[in-house]
């Protein structure tokens, strides 16, 4: 009988001690905000395009933290999905085509300024305030701030906004990776075609 009492009391005391420790830890090491959502948000491309169905990257990151699928971000594409899958420890899924396709390269909005009527609709649509202008004044895109999200294209009543690929200059040009040698290409039986260093004449 006494052994039972001792066992129960010891367990109770232990439970109390650990409960106190846990309670203390919960207060002492409280994490502000939603750390998972913040980490997810850090991986999203921040185009704020809303193609995922959420009004911006942060809301989508919060939704992902709450169990939303990770394959709804076309600007991020496969690499973002992979990074999210790595972070969350889930299987990467192919990009959900419903939300749009991944673009080939970075884009930037361009306003054909001669056609702009100064309606400010695009200014209101831009999620990152990258369009400047005033009512009845021509607007223009701050290219450095534009995320290429497309959101300004649709509201324009005169269709004077177009998305252009970001141009390559000597400032952002860099060498392509050498083509992999023949040992990596299963169908390649001609060694000479595999050598990018030859025959590539400008």
């Amino acid at each position: 009988m006494s052994t039972v009492v001792i066992a129960v009391s010891v367990l109770a005391v232990l439970a109390l001690i650990f409960g106190a420790v846990l309670g203390f830890a919960a207060v002492r090491f409280r994490v502000e905000g939603n750390p998972i959502a913040d980490q997810v948000n850090a991986l999203l491309p921040q185009t704020q395009c809303g193609q995922c169905g959420y009004p911006g990257c942060k809301p989508y990151s919060e939704a992902i933290a709450n169990g939303e699928k990770i394959n709804k971000c076309p600007p991020g594409g496969e690499s973002t999905i992979q990074a999210l899958a790595d972070l969350l420890g889930v299987e990467p899924e192919p990009l959900d085509a419903e939300h749009g396709a991944e673009k080939a390269g970075p884009m930037v909005a361009f306003i054909r300024e001669a056609e702009c009527i100064g309606c400010t609709k695009c200014i209101q649509a831009c999620p990152v305030d990258a369009i400047i202008g005033a009512a009845k004044q021509m607007h223009t895109v701050v290219a450095a701030e534009c995320t290429g999200c497309d959101l300004c294209v649709e509201p324009c009543p005169v269709d004077c906004i177009e998305m252009r690929p970001v141009e390559t200059s000597t400032a952002n040009w860099f060498w392509q990776a050498p083509q992999q040698g023949p040992q990596m290409i299963a169908t390649d039986s001609r060694p000479h075609a595999a050598n990018d260093n030859k025959g590539e004449a400008a």
Binding site: P182, T187, D188, S189
Partner: peptide, 9 residues
């Protein structure tokens, strides 16, 4: 079998 150039390798 792997369809690689024989001579080269």
């Amino acid at each position: 079998i792997r369809q690689r150039p024989l001579g080269f390798f």
